[in-house]
């Protein structure tokens, strides 16, 4: 219980709550779009650079197993999400595939929150984890879209959807940052370090206010999604997260790294996936996937998921 409260009382989580409250009380608070876009560029590039500089000093052999495990997670999670949504969520093919694309992909902010939570406990995480975020981002969406095309659901364009995912700003900035970081190495990144490191958490706080505002709006729609979907929105992150933690420990990650991998696997994307899904599956109802990803699963992971994965990592680590 203490760990739960400890996880909640942090500037990042509380800024998210502030956004939700501001929406509830119908405040005129809004993060202007250029500011939000600017912050997302800053955050994604900073994450990429940090991961890239760690890649520069990590031998390739050490990355291989975690990379493969992450890719497998990216292939498994959309499949389980799809069948859970079909069977227990009673969604149609197209809606289930759309939701599965979100759970197959990864939420960068959940990743960041998990890294912060692990750091607060004094544990270490592997520096190259952002590279795994990039690995996890794309395959889930592709697998989920395959379900839809198998079920005759795709009316939209595959080519455009793929273009949307692969050239979307989150992948371009993440991969670009990783590449720049890896090429330059830690020594040359010292120059940009003050800008990208010192202000990072503050920028994240403002970003979280915007996410809170958006989630607050989605929470109002939560009732319309139905009880089954709400329950699934909490069950899926636990299932995927536990799998991710277990896979992380098995792949030889530190317990802290496994917590972060769990949070990544348990998270649902709401930046890359919605745009791609809207293009590929225009008939799927955004109310389902946006409400689940942003309104239910994201807050669930922030509040309960991440502390739960920390507990799981401790147990798994002592077993293996």
């Amino acid at each position: 219980m203490n760990a739960l409260a400890e996880n909640l009382i942090s500037p990042v989580v509380l800024c998210f709550v502030l956004g939700i409250v501001a929406r509830w009380v119908k405040s005129d608070l809004a993060v202007p779009e250029p500011v939000y876009q600017g912050l997302s560029i800053y955050l994604l590039l900073a994450i990429g650079l940090k991961g890239g500089s760690a890649l520069a000093v990590t031998p390739f052999g050490e990355l291989l197993l975690p990379g493969v495990i992450t890719l497998l997670l990216g292939l498994i999670t959309p499949v389980s999400a799809y069948f859970l949504m079909r069977r227990f969520g009673r969604l149609g093919v197209e809606d289930a595939a759309a939701v599965a694309a979100h759970y197959g992909s990864v939420s960068v902010v959940t990743f960041l929150a998990a890294v912060e939570a692990v750091k607060r406990t004094g544990a270490e995480t592997e520096g190259y984890l952002p590279a795994l975020v990039a690995v996890l981002e794309v395959p889930g969406i592709i697998v989920a879209l395959l379900f839809a095309s198998g079920g005759g659901g795709t009316k939209g364009s595959w080519r455009k959807a793929l273009h949307e995912v692969v050239t979307g700003k989150s992948i371009v900035l993440l991969l670009g940052g990783l590449l720049i970081g890896a090429l330059c190495g830690p020594a040359k990144l010292v120059d940009v370090q003050p800008f990208f490191a010192a202000a990072f958490k503050g920028a994240l706080c403002i970003f979280m206010i915007e996410l809170g505002l958006a989630a607050g709006k989605r929470l109002r729609d939560a009732g319309k999604a139905g009880v089954r979907l709400l329950v699934l929105g909490c069950v899926i992150p636990v299932l995927h997260g536990a799998l991710g933690v277990f896979a992380g420990i098995a792949a030889g990650l530190s317990p802290g790294g496994a917590v972060v991998l769990g949070a990544m696997a348990g998270s649902a994307s709401y930046i890359a996936a919605p745009a791609a899904v809207r293009v590929a599956l225009p008939g799927a109802n955004p109310a389902y996937y946006l409400t689940l990803a942003l309104g239910i699963t994201f807050p669930f992971n922030l509040a309960i998921g991440i502390p739960l994965f920390q507990t799981l990592a401790k147990h798994f680590d002592s077993w293996l």
Binding site: E33, K217, R218, P274, A275, R278, P286, A287, L290
Partner: peptide, 11 residues
């Protein structure tokens, strides 16, 4: 129309 995917991330 109700909500849409691009709604929370731009106009």
């Amino acid at each position: 129309r109700g909500i849409r995917a691009s709604e929370w991330e731009g106009r």
